[in-house]
Structure formats: C-alpha cells, structure tokens
C-alpha cells in the first residue's frame, strides 16, 4: 500500500480531461482532493492524497506523467520562514492537521510538514507572514 500527498500541475492543454476519474476507475486509487484550482484554458494546480496498492500507485503516477502533468511531493509546499516566525503560536489552534505544535517547555513552535494538508489557514492567520506557500 502506498499513500502520498502530491501536488499536480496541470498544463493548459489537459485541464479539461477527467484525470481523477481515470485514477479511480482505471487504477483503483483512492483520491482525496485537498485543494484544487483548475480553470478551463489556464494552468491548474491540485493537491491530492493518493492511496492504493503499490503497483496501481505506480501505474497511476505513470499515467499522470505521460499525460504531461508535473508531480511533486506536497511537503515542500508550505514553508515556514524561520526569520519571520517569532514562535508565538497563534497558528497552532487553527491547524486542522495538527502540523503545528508548541514545545511544552520552551514553547517554541514546530512545523511538521509531513502532517500538513496545505489548507493555507496558517498562511492567513500568521501576523508575521512566516508561513509561505511555494508552488514551483
């Protein structure tokens, strides 16, 4: 079983294709769409949690690659700017994934990007603009 959160970049020419439908029907993969911004005739972006047996997962990824989608692991996409972060912790209660935590002793904030679902709520909440979205 493989389960990964990935970011898909849709080139303009395939925005109108039923990509997710194919992943589910043809490759028997579980698809949870965490974020999608796909507009006809523009480049699109989707954050997807993809789950299935190893062979199907690999075939599904091959299918996406052949279609011309750029795929990258999700964890790179919310970045904590440690220069800006003051470790206040106002982001902690709004994170739905529990990716932000305070150390009980030092009360410094840690960001566990493997838990992050890129909802971007912390980006809006952070008064210091320390949480940044990076889509490459």
């Amino acid at each position: 079983m493989t389960s990964q959160k990935i970011v898909l970049h849709f080139p303009r020419k395939i925005v109108n294709q039923p990509v997710i439908w194919t992943l589910i029907k043809e490759y028997d993969l579980e698809c949870s769409i965490l974020k999608a911004n796909i507009t006809p005739s523009e480049e699109g972006l989707m954050v997807l949690e993809l789950k299935g047996n190893n062979d199907n997962y690999k075939l599904g990824i091959d299918f996406l690659t052949e279609l011309g989608l750029k795929i990258q692991p999700l964890s790179q996409d919310i970045i904590r700017n440690k220069e800006r972060c003051i470790d206040c912790g106002v982001c902690i209660p709004v994170c739905p994934a529990g990716a932000l935590e305070a150390d009980p002793e030092t009360r410094k904030v840690s960001f566990n990007d493997s838990k992050c679902v890129v909802c971007e709520f912390c980006v809006q909440v952070c008064p210091f603009k320390a949480m940044e979205v990076r889509f490459e």
Binding site: I86, D87, C88, G89, V90, C91, I92, P93, V94, A102, T106, R107, K108, P127
Partner: peptide, 25 residues
C-alpha cells in the same frame, strides 16, 4: 491557557498566543 486548550461553555477550545513566550525569555 498555555496547556493548549481551555473549557468555555462546556466546550474544549484550543488556545493560541499572539505573544511569544520564547522571545520574552
């Protein structure tokens, strides 16, 4: 407040501090 949650009207509510304790130290 610094334990991470308080109870308000019977509901557990997660807490966040706008002020940095570690910077205060």
């Amino acid at each position: 407040l610094t334990s991470g949650a308080i109870t308000v009207q019977g509901k557990e509510v997660p807490t966040g501090n706008l002020s940095s304790y570690s910077k205060a130290i």
